[in-house]
Design a binder for these strands. Structure first.
Length: 468
RNA sequence: UCCCCGAUAGCUCAAUCGGUAGAGCGAGCGGCUGUUAACCGCUAGGUUCAAGGUUCGAGUCCUUGUCGGGGAGCCA
């Protein structure tokens, strides 16, 4: 069908102009004076187009007069200046074709306010609402900006496996992938399930991170990034966690922690600026209806330096804050949510990059720093914290020294043979390299102000929830 | 997984001390109107999440479970 997107009809066409539009009915107002106003949305933008259907249309009495919210419609006619007050232009229809009716008694999306919780139970229809349409468009703009940032800088987009045998130590619980009959799996002599008979002749899982594989590509191709789905079987029930989410993971050869942090900051600023520039209408909606701080916050961040502090400096700040912490802070403990929020929301009031965490609380692959003046051992790790969401990016410089890496693996009782391929990168032509991971949904949450991560992905997967 | 809160009409909510369930929106019908989530009138619509328990009597109190929300942990 050769149709005009409503976005283009509203912004690019200058009346009078002929146009055919197609979409779903938001509301209908009938006039016994002999015509109807059909408010049409096609998802191309937040705004709707008012279609005026004259009573002389051949299907007026039979179809148009009984049109309901949610019905799909194709309308052809002249785009003209509107006589009414709510809109600049409208479509004076010469033809209105009803493609599919929506029974008003059972259609769940009524022309009224619905709670986000209710709409979550209608995941297949909620994209037809203003909020979820806007989320979808902003999410798309974020993804486009992500690719654009890396492509402009010469990063290669690589694809790391979804099914993996490695568990990226410490990154959480795994979903097992198997074709074995779960009601009667083959068992070995010791009674344990014999995964040697499974599809891959070994235990396999859905990936929790493409980082280790991305490192192998970076250590050949220079700068690369992955952008794909990631799975965590953690029983996390919060507005910030999903069992299936999308992660962006750049990996850069010949790069240290400072370069990693520079890239992360430039990256976030690019994404925020792109959304402000390209999704003005949707962002105004979020600012008006969801969170009246998002526009100011994004504009401020896109133009200002991120705060950078070391973990040790952060601990000192927290100790001197003169606050009663639920979890008293001292060097060596991980930062709790209350500490991260204090730093990013109260102390600095902007995105904050915390670096150089104690080695004891971070995974084996992070590069070990020289001991500090007090002889404390840290690693070249960084977390980027933003107000309200908390950690939006986690990254590090990777340990490129074989002996140090092997010692760290031994410390944490890892099986060296499982990571032989990973150690090979250090065995043959090792280079300093660094990277980070961005949770796409947390980024979309931050940009839109949506409070619950389940509302920034079309079909959220969380514990006990995969209905659609 | 732990701690709090909640579940009543299609949706959003109300129901006093434990006394027999009500409104708005939506829907149907009628009226009116270049209307703007229109407006006015009428009508229909309920196993009060489930299972037990206390009581003459339970939407209301108790127990358990299910689901939802917030906080925490884990993290992105």
């Amino acid at each position: 069908m050769n149709r005009t997107l409503i976005r283009d009809a509203l912004t690019n066409l200058r009346p009078p102009a002929e146009a055919t539009v197609a979409g779903w009915v938001r509301t209908v107002r009938h006039s016994k004076g002999g015509f109807s106003f059909i408010t049409l949305n096609d998802g191309s933008c937040l705004a709707t187009l008012q279609v005026v259907a004259d009573g002389k249309l051949p299907n007026y009495a039979e179809e148009i007069a009984h049109l309901t919210t949610g019905s799909s419609v194709v309308a052809r006619g002249a785009l003209v200046a509107s006589q009414g007050k709510g809109q600049a232009v409208e479509l004076q229809a010469s033809e209105v074709r009803v493609l599919g009716r929506a029974d008003a008694d059972s259609y769940p999306i009524q022309p009224k306010h619905h709670t986000l919780e209710f709409l979550r139970t209608q995941a297949h229809l909620r994209p037809r609402t203003n909020t979820f349409g806007a989320v979808a468009r902003v999410r798309n703009a974020v993804c486009a900006a992500i690719h654009e940032f890396f492509q402009r800088r010469g990063f290669l987009y690589i694809h790391t496996p979804i099914i993996t045998a490695s568990d990226c130590e410490g990154a959480g619980q795994l979903f097992r992938v198997t074709t074995l009959d779960v009601s009667a799996p083959p068992r070995g002599p010791d009674g344990a399930v014999d995964f040697a008979q499974d599809f891959f002749a070994r235990s396999t899982y859905l990936t929790v991170s493409g980082q280790l594989e991305a490192e192998t590509c970076a250590c050949a191709l220079g700068n690369v990034y992955t952008f794909g789905p990631t799975f965590r079987a953690e029983n996390s029930n919060t507005p910030r966690h999903l069992a299936e989410f999308w992660m962006v993971e750049p990996e850069m050869a010949f790069c240290d922690l400072a370069g990693d942090a520079d890239t992360a900051e430039a990256f976030l600023k690019h994404v925020f600026r792109a959304v402000l520039d390209r999704c003005a209408e949707d962002m105004k909606f979020f600012n008006d209806r969801i969170d009246n701080t998002v526009l100011d916050t994004l504009a401020h961040i896109a133009d200002s330096e991120f705060q950078r502090v070391t973990y040790s400096e952060a601990v000192t700040l927290l100790e001197k804050a003169g606050r009663q912490w639920e979890f008293p802070m001292h060097w060596g403990r991980d930062l709790q949510t209350e500490h991260e929020r204090f730093l990013t929301e109260e102390t600095f009031r902007k995105p904050t990059i915390i670096t150089d965490y104690p080695a004891s609380i971070k995974p084996f692959y992070m590069r070990v720093n020289e001991p500090d003046a007090q002889g404390r051992r840290t690693v070249a790790a960084m977390d980027v914290l933003v107000p309200k969401i908390g950690e939006i990016i986690g990254g590090s410089q990777r340990e490129e020294r074989l002996d140090v890496l092997e010692a760290r693996m031994a410390e944490t009782h890892m099986k060296a043979e499982d990571y032989r391929w990973y150690a090979d990168l250090r065995r043959y032509g090792t280079v300093p390299h660094a990277g980070f991971g961005l949770g796409l949904e947390r980024c979309v949450q931050f940009v839109t102000g949506m409070a619950n991560i389940r509302d920034v992905i079309p079909y959220p997967r969380t514990p006990r929830s995969a209905e659609y």
